[in-house]
């Protein structure tokens, strides 16, 4: 049986590992490389590494640094931040990325998704969607690290991206991110109902119970950062909890 993945997310800004609340008030929580080494040693299911300022600063991905990190990463890794063209994707895959995550560029040039899927295969194209609740209780997608409203609804946008060839959706609740109050379950449902590709839930995890809820609401994988940075919880403990609740998870040999 396919196992439900638990995925630590590492956000970085100028080499340092950071974590914010609601895509704001970033605080430094360490350096990236040691974190990658620890997660590799602990045999996490996957890692997501996102450069949160590359797009806004109109920067290229920092290939050299990413290659150094990937060297130490023996678990599957998704890399994102600042990706705007096929050549960048090619180079990131070459550096050791297993998948790339595309967010802002997808709204400006949707054909990047279809071309990337055609050239590199859908399996390595993750579309990352950041969404915020609107006044009337719906959701709207935001680009550029949650700064620019796009007028798109997450479920419909996810479905559109699936049609273009996206292989996975990473859905993040902007308001709940970093709050550790739990995932936005309604948002997860809105997206998982609309697509037939895997969906990774992100934003708000504060306990293993929150992860269980996200999975019960349709998520195929759960991503989290704060819970691992700021609490004693480890991915292995989350795994044990989910296993006790009947969720298929990977059992690693210790």
């Amino acid at each position: 049986m396919l196992k439900t993945r638990i995925i630590p997310t590492l956000l970085w800004k100028n080499i340092g590992l950071v974590k914010g609340i609601g895509f704001d008030s970033w605080r430094r929580v360490g350096t990236v490389l040691p974190a990658i080494k620890v997660y590799t040693m602990r045999e996490v299911d996957e890692l997501i590494l996102l450069d949160i300022t590359a797009t806004d600063e109109m920067r290229e991905p920092d290939y050299e640094t990413i290659a150094d990190w990937a060297q130490e990463c023996f678990v599957p890794v998704t890399i994102g931040g600042g990706i705007r063209n096929l050549e960048q994707i090619r180079r990131l895959l070459r550096c050791g990325a297993d998948k790339v995550s595309i967010n802002s560029a997808a709204y400006e040039q949707p054909n990047l998704i279809s071309e990337a899927a055609k050239r590199f295969g859908s399996q390595c194209v993750v579309v990352s969607i950041d969404a915020r609740k609107t006044a009337n209780g719906d959701y709207e997608c935001y680009s550029h690290s949650g700064r620019l409203p796009t007028g798109k609804r997450p479920g419909e946008w996810a479905r559109f991206c699936e049609g273009l060839g996206a292989g996975e959706i990473l859905i993040t609740s902007i308001e709940l991110d970093g709050t550790m109050q739990g995932y936005d379950l309604k948002l997860i449902e809105e997206v998982t109902r609309q697509v037939s590709i895997p969906v990774i839930a992100s934003g708000g995890a504060g306990s293993p119970q929150h992860m269980l809820e996200a999975i019960q609401h349709g998520a195929n994988a759960v991503a989290a950062a704060s819970i691992f940075h700021f609490t004693e919880q480890t991915p292995a403990q989350v795994r044990d909890f989910l296993f006790s609740q009947g969720i298929p998870v990977r059992r690693t040999v210790t």
């Binding site: 396919l2 993945r5 299911d45 996957e46 292989g167 697509v195 195929n220």
Partner: peptide, 11 residues
Amino acid sequence: KERIPHVGWNE
């Protein structure tokens, strides 16, 4: 419940 691509750890 089976989604494609098949992504993750499996037996």
